[in-house]
């Protein structure tokens, strides 16, 4: 066997691929499902917090900043372990899936809040004055005037952050969530072969490379004509 054949046999073994493809595919869909849920709930909560913050109520803003700082400073894996292993002793047992979804949603919400808030601040204050002077209310001004302009600026950083955080679904492996990486490492140890890990890598590329490019596409689309 040449070195190249040995390499293929170890990392791209067709027999192993066929044997474990169903597991990898199942893991792929679990990863997709959790990723979608995290993106939806994380971005929604982040936007909600940013809008709430723009009311500029002292103690609420203080709480929001504490929340954001905490979730920016703590590694998600620490939070996952605390919730997964710590809560059952208090009589509250959450499944690995719920813990993973909850932690990643909160982390994404924290980052998204910061990004949306920066976007809101970047909109010229004259826009708010003009809108309020025509009788639009606070929320109407937010929804129709401020956010459409703010969101355009947030697309790029938000996409990057969302990809980085949804990639953390791989952390589910540590607490037994049957996602892609978990399926792959399990298959790898059963098969005694590294092929499942390559399959997982390829699956991640299939999942995230289009998102990277979609982000760029949306970014150019949202850039409406400016003189």
């Amino acid at each position: 066997m040449t070195r190249f054949e040995a390499f293929l046999d170890t990392f791209f073994n067709v027999a192993v691929m066929q044997r474990y493809l169903p597991d990898i595919v199942a893991g792929f869909f679990v990863t997709c499902g959790i990723a979608v849920l995290v993106v939806v709930s994380g971005l929604a909560l982040g936007l909600l917090l940013a809008v709430l913050r723009s009311y500029r109520i002292g103690w609420i803003n203080f709480l929001i900043i504490i929340f954001v700082d905490l979730l920016r400073a703590l590694p998600p894996l620490v939070l996952i372990l605390i919730l997964y292993f710590g809560l059952p002793n208090l009589g509250l047992t959450l499944s690995g899936y719920v813990v993973l979804w909850l932690v990643l949603s909160l982390v994404l919400a924290a980052f998204a809040e910061e990004i949306f808030w920066a976007g809101i601040l970047s909109v010229n204050s004259g826009q708010r004055l003009a809108a309020r002077s025509t009788g639009l209310g606070f929320l109407q001004t937010m929804v129709y005037v401020i956010l459409p302009q703010a969101v355009r600026l947030t697309i790029a950083p938000l996409t990057n952050r969302t990809i980085a955080i949804t990639k953390n679904t791989a952390l589910g492996m540590v607490i037994g969530v049957g996602e892609l990486l978990n399926q792959a490492t399990t298959a790898q140890s059963f098969a005694g072969n590294a092929t499942p890990l390559m399959m997982a890598t390829i699956a991640y590329l299939i999942l995230f490379v289009p998102v990277v490019y979609a982000g760029r596409w949306i970014e150019t689309r949202y850039a409406w004509r400016r003189a």
């Binding site: 004259g126 004055l129 003009a130 809108a131 309020r132 002077s133 025509t134 355009r152 409406w224």
Partner: peptide
């Protein structure tokens, strides 16, 4: 406020809306 019209030094038109959209919003 809708009965008190206001015009600003820097126009403050909404850049993401057409002229018609700007007038139509309120």
């Amino acid at each position: 406020r809708r009965r008190i019209g206001m015009v600003f030094q820097s126009f403050n038109l909404y850049p993401h809306m057409t002229a018609l959209g700007n007038v139509r919003l309120a």
